[in-house]
Structures are given as C-alpha cells and as structure tokens.
Amino acid sequence: MLELRLVQGSLLKKVLEAIKDLVNDANFDCSATGFSLQAMDSSHVALVALLLRSEGFEHYRCDRNLSMGMNLGNMAKMLKCAGNDDIITLKADDGSDTVTFMFESPTQDKISDFEMKLMDIDSEHLGIPEAEYHAIVRMPSSEFGRICKDLSSIGDTVVISVTKEGVKFSTRGDIGTANIVCRQNNTVDKPEEATIIEMTEPVSLTFALRYMNSFTKATPLSSIVTLSLSSDLPVVVEYKIAEMGYIRFYLAPKIEE
C-alpha cells in the first residue's frame, strides 16, 4: 500500500513539466527515504535524478519498496488537471497495475480521482559516484534560463568556462558569436540574486544547448540553480526543491574529436 499526500501539489506539477520532454517513460521508486526517479533521455546523453524526501509529505505511507513505471507525458496530462493550490495524493495498492492521483481543492469542495495505468519499464539504475567538482557556480535560475535561451538563438553548443573572475557562457553559429560573463557577486541584498563561484581550478566544458534549455524548464521549482563542473565529468545542473529535495540533471560534455 502506497499513499503520499503532498499539500503543495503544485510542486509535483512543476516537476513533471520539468522532465516530461526529456524522458518519455520512467520508474518512480518509492521507499522510506522518499519518492525518487532516475532516468536517462533516449539518447543517453542526459540523466535526471529526482528526490522528494518522505518528510516533505504531509502523509507518507510506503509499506514496502515499490517501483512504478509511468509514461511521463500521460502523468503530466493528469497532473495538469490539478489546480495549482490543490493537495495531491498518490495512491497505489500492492501488485496493482494502476496509480491513482487524488486532487483536493484547498476548501475541500472539489475532489477528483484520476487513475493511470502503470507500465513495465526495463531501466538500468546507474551508480553516480560522489565527486569533487573543480568549480561550483550558484546563480539565479532565471538568469541561467535567460542565458541558455539567448545563446540558443545564435548557436547549438555552449562553452561554460569558470575562472576566479566569473563564469563565461560562449557560443558560435553561422551568424556570429556570443559571450556572456557573469561575475561573482555576493553583495546583493537578496541571496537569491547572488552569483557565487567556488573554484579549485579553472574549468572549461562544451555542452549541447538543446539539453541545457530543456533543464531550464525546472526554473519554476527554485530561484537558484547550481552548476557543478569538472573537466572529466558530466555537468550537474541542480534545482533544489524547498523543504523536499532536488532535481538534478547530468549532461555529458562534447569533446574535441
């Protein structure tokens, strides 16, 4: 028996909007720790890892570990039917091939049930080693989203270079080139507007902008994004989900042939 009650149902709606275009089908894993997902895009270039900790739910019952295969497009369709202020409850019986989403309006005057078919998904769970990153950039998520969108109108790839002075996003295309430098700035009034760079050595990596732009669909989940870069690892683009966990996107770099 599984029963997860999330008072801030809009979080789950936002999570699905953030990942549904990157991953078609995925297993949601439910354990005492929380509600989680790990899935790769169909080209195996990007990986998304989601964790919503059990403590973040108003009610969290998960009698035994359960893996539920879902089509994320269909799940997003169902969650779109929940109001932004609705409480969302997920329910599944042991051995059932369906999951039920229950939506309650804040005043309890409207209660909806949506039952969705589960699917068998053969997916490999990858071990993501703990890593020391050469550079960690923390910046406003809206700023990062704007940069990725702007650069993708010029080129297909972005070179992210981190030095002590700042983080530079560069692209080139048929019409020309673009460079955007964000300097470290931790003296702003609001912490969510700061750009903070922790660096042990300079790093410069190239990534496909198509994927970066897809990751920025998680912007509504957090005002801050963290980019973790090492010369020999996929970049980690992390959006923390307040009080609950995180959504992390891993993207393999492009390298000179």
């Binding site: 790769m40 195996h44 270039v45 990007a46 990986l47 490999e124 769970h125 990858l126 071990g127 993501i128 080693p129 790839t157 190239t206 496909a208 690892l233 996929p234 891993y250 993207l251 393999a252 770099p253 492009k254 390298i255 000179e256 042939e257």
Partner: peptide, 14 residues
C-alpha cells in the same frame, strides 16, 4: 567538430 559523449561513459550500472 565536437563529439557528444554518452552518460554511460561516466556512470556505470549498479
């Protein structure tokens, strides 16, 4: 020309 690496080049199956 840049070659797109694969995430499986970095993370292994458990």
């Amino acid at each position: 020309p840049c070659l797109q690496r694969n995430i499986l080049d970095y993370f292994n199956g458990e």
